[in-house]
Design a protein around this nucleic acid. Sequence first.
DNA 1: AACAGTCTCAACCGCCTCGAG
DNA 2: TCTCGAGGCGGTTGAGACTGT
Length: 337
Amino acid sequence: MSRKPCCVGEGLKKGAWTAEEDKKLISYIHEHGEGGWRDIPQKAGLKRCGKSCRLRWTNYLKPDIKRGEFSYEEEQIIIMLHASRGNKWSVIGRHLPKRTDNEVKNYWNTHLKKRLIDNGIDPVTHKPLDSSNPGPAVPKKFDCQDKSLPDEHSVQWSSTTPASPLSSTINSVKPKISSGETQIESGFLRCKKRFERSSSTSRLLNKVAARASSIGNILSTSIEGTLSSPASSSCLPDSFSQSSEHMIDNKEDLSTSIDINIPEYDFPQFLEQFINDNDEAENTGGSNQDLLMSDVPSTFVDEDDIIGDITSWSTYLLDHPNFMYESDQDSEEKNFL
DNA sequence: AACAGTCTCAACCGCCTCGAG
DNA sequence: TCTCGAGGCGGTTGAGACTGT
């Protein structure tokens, strides 16, 4: 049995909305609120189907919709969540305040997907496209290389540079250097350079990728409230359960209070902490597994406790909601140069 | 200036989910 | 338990804008 299309009707208008129609819809919703979409066209005096009205409202007319260019941070969030959730645009959209799922979907299809492919990353699996080579397949050049930068700022990956799927994917999105290129390097690029100098580059990159992937899972899972069920949380340490409850309690905050444009940026600090923690762990024999060749799946599960201290990890995220955001250039220069 | 090719994104289509009766 | 329908979701389309020649 096939259902009749909802928008079959005599004289129903299709296509682009006019300013007049927008005005009618807005004033009706302001007066009566959302919902009851089927009846709205008639009541608002529109020759549109209810579904069309709903879409127009949610994707375009709603007052708290943010339009325009996606920031680098928003791009990272999209990639991270896409790696862990796939084409769940509504889920991804919920993590981007004021962005609609439709906008996220469009942006992925027209920008990010293309960029990943250009950099040799499969946008579906988030793994290097050259799957015939099981080794450390990587883009020929570090993907954050900005053509506008002087040569000394171009980081070349060596053939042994590791690339877990997510690290490859995230690397593949060139940060947008703000106009004027006064931010000679983004914090991201500097982090990469720092990693290059590190003797444990491979492990670090893989772990960062693994943890980053997990952040996506943690955030998604917690915000959707699945961690609140005893069944799902019972397998986790008590400390994490408490932490996740804390996250759930704050899900409203997470979804609404994060201002993507906040210029604060703790990523360097986070990396410092991460590197220190990692070094400590290695010195004490706590982490001796080289993940260089490991294939961290996009839906990475920390079964082997690679993300050992998940409580402090999630706590860090809660305390530093802007950890991925661009820093003040000066303070960052001090940290990295 | 004119045309063709490409890109962007608002809007549509059809299937799915879930709650009400 | 089943059916129905509203709302939600993801995939796709196509008009208009943009870019290159």
